[in-house]
Simulated scan of single mutants.
Amino acid sequence: MNSVQLLRSQLRPALMGLLMTMACVTCVHADDGVALTHIDQVPEGVEVPGKQVAAYTWDDRQGKNLLVLAEQVSEREDDGTQSAFVYAAQYLLTGDHPKRVWMLHDDVQHCEFDASLRFDQSATKVTDLLRDGNSQVTVGYSRTCTSDVSPNEFKLIMRVGKSGKYRLRGLDRVGASWWDEDAGALRGMPLPTDCSVEAQQKLVSQYKEQGTELPLPGCYGDEKDFAKAPGDYLVFMRRHWFALMQKQDADWSQSLAQPQEAAEDVESAP
């Protein structure tokens, strides 16, 4: 069961009671008071294309909210191409019928290789950064059309109400490092800690990989979407982006190290 963190300074007891009374077969209540409902409990009237992979509920000053994430990969066409899709939608569960607040859609169309669009469910966050009872919903997903193991395009998107949309877009850490048999160690561009153009170029120069295009694996391209947004939004999104990239970097490095450890165990066995 995945978790969504709702960052609030205060959560009214009345809302806690309302969440606790929601009927569901599988329900997790996080320490911060957010109830996560199993996707089987999505109510009638919620329409999201694709296969639902996660659903979350929470309360704010607008009422009870529902977030649904869905993915879809098509069969290959006659020409051998493949398409993939992701969908996310927020609903207000007030009144007799769910009311959709927004829907996010992205796709990879007619890919000649392997099309993939996958949500990173650890990226899903619901926050109240302005502490005014209005929530922000953040989701993240990878997007690619490749025939090898290489960094994917990664998008981290914050939705605020019906029309507010703020995005960081760059590359994730999948395939950013590899195992060097001769050195017996991992090699590759390290995870950046600053995504400014100057910092990325300095890192490229330091590792003498001239000609490397920006953004580097683990970085986003720019922060233009946040030019007129409250400052707290960008502070949160920067912090969230780097936390996700650190996790991806650790997971990818571990996946490369494990086969080497297994091989060493076999060689040392009597």
Rank of each mutant, 00 (worst) to 15 (best):
G211N: 08
L92P: 01
D107P: 00
Q52S: 10
T144W: 02
G231I: 03
G231P: 03
T94F: 04
L216C: 02
P151E: 00
S135V: 01
K224M: 09
Q206H: 12
M158W: 07
V101F: 00
K155L: 15
M158H: 05
A89P: 02
A257P: 03
S196E: 04
P259W: 06
T81K: 07
G161I: 04
A257E: 15
A229L: 07
D182C: 06
R118P: 00
R173L: 09
S142L: 09
S83E: 02
E267S: 10
G80L: 05
K202N: 05
L168N: 09
S116M: 10
V108C: 03
G33A: 06
V48S: 04
V46W: 08
D148G: 07
L168V: 09
M245E: 11
E209M: 13
V266P: 00
D106A: 07
D265W: 09
V266R: 12
V174S: 11
T144F: 02
K247W: 03
G80I: 03
S147W: 11
T127W: 01
H97T: 15
T144S: 15
G140W: 02
A35I: 11
S196W: 00
L15A: 14
L214A: 04
V197C: 00
F242D: 02
L156H: 00
L6W: 12
Q109K: 14
T212C: 01
Q121D: 11
T144C: 09
S268T: 12
A269D: 13
V28L: 13
M22H: 13
V108H: 02
E75P: 00
V101L: 13
W241C: 03
G175E: 05
D265P: 00
P13G: 06
